[in-house]
Design a protein around this nucleic acid. Structure first.
Lengths: 207, 207
DNA sequence: GTCCCAAAGCTAAGACCATTAGCCAAGCGC
DNA sequence: GCGCTTGGCTAATGGTCTTAGCTTTGGGAC
């Protein structure tokens, strides 16, 4: 039997594709059998590369966190060009990346938009992020939360409110996205508009 | 073999207790085997009362929605006495229940607090509510969303913003609770305070 | 070029799940 | 007292993850 040439890397990649193809429930539906089938391999073979289903889940979640963090960092690094057209600028001189980072309220809004865009584009991955975030990184380590925290600190508001403010932003964005993914917004009214309304209201009200 | 004297009602009650005992993951961990064991019955027997695991889940979720709706209705009906001491007032004259309902911003805050209190007291049930809400009730039917909508309408703000406002409130509360349940607030800072901050900021900023 | 061995695949088997089919007895209605 | 509905059961099927142990591949050492 020819070898499939798997690797931890490859297995996680396959799992990622499974999560992506599963829509919002792709994360909870992630199963070894699906990954094995997609790899053209028997299920127990996966154990040579990954520590069972829990191990695979952690690995996938970690990748998703890094993924989202990247998207957020790009969102505040390059105002105009949002997420997807980063490739189009590959040929531009490297100094283009040095453009000044967004700050304050602009940054908060950009980060929120990036989180929502990521969640809508990769619902399964977003859910994966949520089950990881908590366990992994302590305060200070660069992750989605830290990016939001940095932006909030630049708002120039009293330091004793920073924690409350970060929590408020995170809660609002996460709650909105979660409801949107779950189909919780039954009415036909423009969801895009509601999201801007939420952010504008919240950010303008911070003190 | 003596009969266990089960009923659909009893099975759902048992399932509810399983969900409660399971903490935040009690809902996703809900299994027929656990319920059957708790009922002192073999697993297939449950099919005589409930339409498999999906059926049981819907029934449980429906009960949780009604449950939460009740708690929210009580929260705006009786300002001082919150959730748990309703029983203590059982002997008071029935007219006591006629106390004027809270309105406007007060009502919104009370509803938000009730939702969070419910989620913290019954994390599994709260998660059950989230997986149901969407499917079940259309607009207008009395449920948690409709209660929030009514309170928002009484704020006296422009009607074309009502939908956005309801969505904002729901998103903020749900997101906060979800992060709190998931252990997403790593820092030791007072979570109670952060919740009030979020609500005050949001409600004060609505326009 | 050969040999060897670590690593990567496999099958088999066990412990849980949910579900369906079909049997049997309990106990209520008449 | 008889029967029939109904609520329990066992058995069997197919799905999941996991462990154990075997086979074979393919690359590095010599």
């Amino acid at each position: 039997m020819p070898r499939a040439g798997l690797s931890r890397q490859a297995v996680v990649d396959l799992a990622l594709s499974v999560v992506d193809d599963g829509g919002p429930s792709g994360w909870s539906d992630l199963a070894l059998s699906t990954v094995a089938h997609r790899a053209g391999v028997a299920v127990p073979s996966l154990y040579k590369h990954v520590d069972g289903l829990p191990g695979l889940r952690s690995a996938v979640a970690a990748r998703c966190v890094a993924d989202l963090t990247d998207a957020m960092a790009r969102a505040i690094a390059r105002p105009a060009t949002d997420l997807e057209d980063a490739a189009a600028h590959k040929d531009a001189p490297a100094d283009d990346d040095r453009r000044a980072t967004l700050a304050g309220a602009e940054a908060v809004r950009a980060l929120a938009a990036a989180i929502r865009a990521y969640a809508l584009a990769h619902p399964g991955r977003y859910r994966a992020v949520q089950s990881a975030e908590t366990a992994a990184l302590g305060p200070g380590s660069a992750g989605p939360v830290e990016l939001v925290a940095r932006a909030v600190r630049q708002l120039g508001l009293p330091a004793h409110r920073w924690v409350d403010q970060v929590r408020a932003i995170r809660a609002a964005v996460h709650g909105f996205v979660e409801l949107e993914l779950g189909g919780g917004f039954g009415l036909p009214e423009d969801v895009e508009m509601s999201f801007r309304y939420l952010l504008d209201t919240l950010v303008a009200g911070l003190r």
